[in-house]
Simulated assay, not measured.
Amino acid sequence: MEFKDRLKAARRHAQLNQAELAAKAGITQTSISDLERGKSKATAHVVKIADACGVSAKWLSDEIGPMTSTAGSGPTESNVSMAVQPSRSFRYPVISWVAAGAWAEAVEPYPAGISDTYEFSEYDSKGPAFWLKVKGDSMTAPAGQSITEGTLILVDTEVEVSPGKLVVAKLPDSNEATFKKLVSDGGRLFLKPLNPGYPIEPVDENCRIVGVVVQALQKFY
């Protein structure tokens, strides 16, 4: 199934309409509608949507594992209960945007002293992964997909990069990484902010895609 079909199945499993799911997940109904119609191919709110529907985030995002984490009620059900399982079990460092910008040049995946702070996630990364705290409002959109300032984003450095995905990139004229949506237009790639008030930046041979954003987490310190 495509993501849009899994989303519809998850919503129906939860017996929610689009407006109810949007309210529970804390996003707009337009976002849900665009995702179910395939107009939007990905979202950073997968975990929130999965939690609202009571389904596995891995299944919803990548169709990995069962739709739900609880065992069924058929005759082959195991006598070992799966009810009390932690949903988040992988530990990733929270690093600075400067460190993220230098990630491609790092000799070791996690250099000593790279972070004093760590956050957990249920996401099992394909490669070295880390959290970044979003700065500014360039990815805050007036409608649809939106990532607000202060949100923690989880970046997987070995997820396949393709247009439509949210990415962290290193531009040649900056020592910090930047967070944008990768888009394609006329055969060329661009880094597009979700906030229309910010400029679109072209991707050239000097621009390095550090990784793909796979989760977003609102964390209040």
Results as ranks from 00 to 15, higher is better:
P142Q: 00
E149K: 08
P202W: 06
A99V: 07
V134F: 07
T151L: 06
Y123W: 14
E158L: 12
P128W: 00
G186D: 01
E176T: 10
K165V: 07
P111T: 14
D185K: 15
R188G: 06
G187K: 04
S125W: 01
W97D: 11
V159S: 10
V168Q: 03
L152Y: 14
T117E: 15
Y110T: 11
A99W: 07
L154H: 11
F120A: 09
K170M: 13
S138R: 02
D156M: 10
K133M: 15
E108S: 14
P202R: 14
F120E: 11
V98S: 06
K180Q: 07
V210I: 15
P109C: 09
T151K: 11
A112F: 10
L194G: 04
G150R: 00
V159R: 05
R208P: 04
V210D: 06
P202K: 11
V168M: 01
D204Y: 02
S184Q: 15
F179S: 03
A106D: 13
N206I: 00
Y123E: 03
T117D: 15
L182P: 04
D173E: 13
V213T: 12
D156E: 07
E160F: 12
S115A: 15
D116I: 10
Q145C: 04
S146A: 02
A112S: 12
D137L: 08
S184D: 10
G144H: 06
E119F: 15
I147M: 03
M139S: 05
G144V: 05
V212T: 12
L194R: 02
L152Q: 12
P109Y: 10
G136H: 06
E160Y: 09
K192T: 12
